[in-house]
Simulated assay, not measured.
Amino acid sequence: MSKTKKNEFRPNDFVVYPAHGVGKIVSIEEQEVAGFKLELFVISFEKDKMTLRVPTQKATEAGLRALSSPDVVAHAMKTLKGKAKVKKAMWSRRAQEYEQKINSGDLIAIAEVVRDLHRADDQREQSYSERQLYEAALERLTREIAAALGNDETQAAREIDEVLVGRAA
């Protein structure tokens, strides 16, 4: 098992934590827990008004990663352009799969959820749970693309929307 290089992430770095999306490392602190000294990344998720402490030794194991590269962002945007792939499985099963993709922290998987659940104005209504999953995936995608490209979220949201609306045409 390889240890995370201590200096892989630094304060003020944006990182992606699978279950919560994009956060910012505020500091690296030491805490004593049950007699052991632990070094922790303190990660702030401003939008969710949440702070997470992740042991630096377990960060990679926990899925903490740097923001996606421009190549991955481009691949995610290309994924959005594709045709929705909706399996014939029952909704509860598909919903579970979508949830797993969203929480995987994998930008391409998240883009697939957005693509598959996006509805053009003239398409059938979405159920409440479909809408919730779509919005969760869209928010994760928007935040990471904005952070990765150094844009604001409004700009990233507009670009994503243009791709989604453009493919329906």
Rank of each mutant, 00 (worst) to 15 (best):
K3P: 07
P70G: 10
V42I: 15
K85R: 15
R124H: 12
M77G: 00
S68L: 10
F45M: 03
I145A: 06
K3H: 14
V72Q: 08
H75T: 11
P70A: 11
Q126C: 09
T154N: 08
R124L: 13
S69P: 06
P18N: 03
V16H: 02
K47P: 01
L64I: 14
S68R: 07
L149G: 08
A62C: 13
D71N: 12
V54C: 09
K78G: 02
I43T: 06
V72A: 11
I25S: 01
R167P: 00
G105H: 01
K5G: 05
G105W: 00
T142P: 05
E153A: 12
A120Q: 05
E8Y: 15
R119W: 04
L164N: 03
K85C: 07
E39S: 14
S27H: 09
A19D: 12
V15C: 03
K88R: 14
K5D: 13
K6D: 14
K87S: 15
Q155A: 13
Y17T: 02
G63D: 10
E162K: 06
S92D: 08
A157Y: 11
I25F: 08
A74V: 05
E125H: 13
A84M: 07
N103A: 09
E112N: 07
A84R: 10
A120G: 15
Y134L: 14
L164I: 07
P55D: 10
Q57T: 10
A156M: 04
V16F: 04
L141H: 05
G35K: 12
E159P: 00
S129E: 07
A74D: 14
Q96A: 10
K85P: 00
L117V: 05
V16Y: 02
G82L: 09
Y98N: 04
P70V: 13
E97I: 09
K58N: 15
Y134Q: 07
E32N: 06
Y98F: 15
K24R: 15
E39P: 05
S92K: 08
L67Y: 08
D152G: 10
L107R: 04
V113W: 06
N103R: 11
A137C: 07
L52R: 00
E144R: 08
L52V: 12
E97D: 15
D71K: 11
D116K: 09
F36K: 15
D161P: 00
H20E: 11
S92Q: 05
L117W: 07
K3R: 14
R158K: 12
D48T: 03
L40H: 08
D122E: 13
I108N: 04
A76I: 06
G105F: 00
A95K: 03
S44Y: 02
L52F: 04
A156W: 00
L164W: 06
R93Q: 13
T56A: 10
N12E: 15
V22R: 01
T51Y: 06
E39D: 12
Q123P: 12
L107S: 01
V113I: 12
I110E: 02
V114L: 01
I25L: 09
A95P: 15
P18R: 00
S92P: 03
D161V: 03
